[in-house]
Amino acid sequence: MMKNVYILFSILILAGCNSSVRPGDSTLNEEVPFKEARNYFVKNNIDAALDSPKFENQQEFKKVFGMATTMGENGKPTPIDFSKEFVVAQIEDPSTQAIELKPVSIRKNSNILEIKYRKVVGENRSYTSQTSMVLIIDKKYDSEDINIEEIL
C-alpha cells in the first residue's frame, strides 16, 4: 500500500514539472543583443509616423535616414550589413527640446520583438530637431511583430 502511495506521489510530482515550453522553442522571453547606430539623422521630409519601424534593406533605410559623418575617430556612421542585420527605429516628432532616446532592453517573446526605451527630455533650444533611436539587430532574431514601448 505504501509503495502505491509513493508511486502515485512520484507521478504527481513529475506531472507538475511539465513545462509549456516546447522542445526547440527557445524564443520565449529571450534577451536579444543589439547595437545602437550612431551618426545618422532623420531626413527633413519624414514625420514621426512610419508605416513600420523595421528596415530590412539599405534602400528603405536611405529613404528615411541620412549619414551624419563628423570629424574624429568616432565620426563615421555605424556600418549596417543588411544581409545579416535589420534595423528598428523609433522617431520622435520634431521638437525644440533636447531629447535623448535610450534603449533599455530588447526581448523576443514567441514571434514578438519587444523593445523598451527611456526618453530623456532636456532644455529648450533655439532650433528644431528630430530625435531618433536606431537599433541594429541580427536577422536570427527577426520578427514580424514589433512592439516599441516607452518606459517611465
Results as ranks from 00 to 15, higher is better:
M1G: 15
M2L: 15
K3P: 07
K3C: 13
K3I: 15
N4Q: 15
N4M: 15
V5S: 12
V5L: 15
L8Q: 15
F9T: 14
S10Y: 14
L12N: 09
L12K: 11
L12T: 15
I13A: 09
L14I: 15
A15I: 15
G16V: 11
C17R: 09
C17Q: 14
N18K: 15
S20Y: 12
V21P: 01
V21C: 12
R22N: 09
P23R: 01
G24H: 02
T27E: 11
T27C: 11
T27A: 09
T27S: 10
L28Q: 12
N29E: 12
V32K: 04
P33K: 11
K35F: 09
K35I: 09
N39M: 05
Y40G: 09
F41E: 09
V42F: 08
K43R: 14
N44G: 03
N45H: 10
N45I: 04
D47W: 02
A48K: 08
D51V: 13
D51W: 02
K54N: 12
E56Y: 14
N57L: 12
E60N: 00
K62F: 13
K63I: 11
K63R: 14
V64G: 08
G66M: 00
M71V: 12
G72R: 15
E73F: 15
N74E: 13
G75Q: 02
G75P: 01
G75C: 00
P77R: 01
P77T: 01
P79C: 04
P79M: 02
I80Q: 03
F82E: 04
E85R: 04
E85D: 02
F86N: 05
V87D: 11
V87E: 09
V88C: 06
V88H: 09
A89Y: 07
Q90S: 13
I91D: 00
I91R: 07
I91F: 06
I91A: 05
E92M: 14
E92T: 06
D93K: 13
P94A: 01
S95E: 08
Q97Y: 11
A98D: 08
E100F: 02
E100Y: 00
K102P: 01
P103I: 06
V104A: 10
S105G: 03
I106R: 10
K108N: 03
K108L: 12
N109Q: 13
I112L: 05
L113F: 08
E114Q: 14
E114S: 05
R118P: 02
V120S: 02
V120C: 00
V120E: 13
G122W: 13
N124T: 01
N124I: 03
R125I: 02
S126F: 07
T128W: 06
Q130M: 07
Q130N: 06
T131L: 05
T131M: 00
T131H: 05
T131A: 03
S132M: 02
S132W: 00
V134W: 07
I136G: 08
I137G: 11
D138S: 09
D138W: 04
K139E: 01
K140S: 04
D142I: 10
N147H: 05
N147D: 03
I148P: 00
I148D: 04
E149D: 06
E150V: 00
I151T: 08
I151C: 00
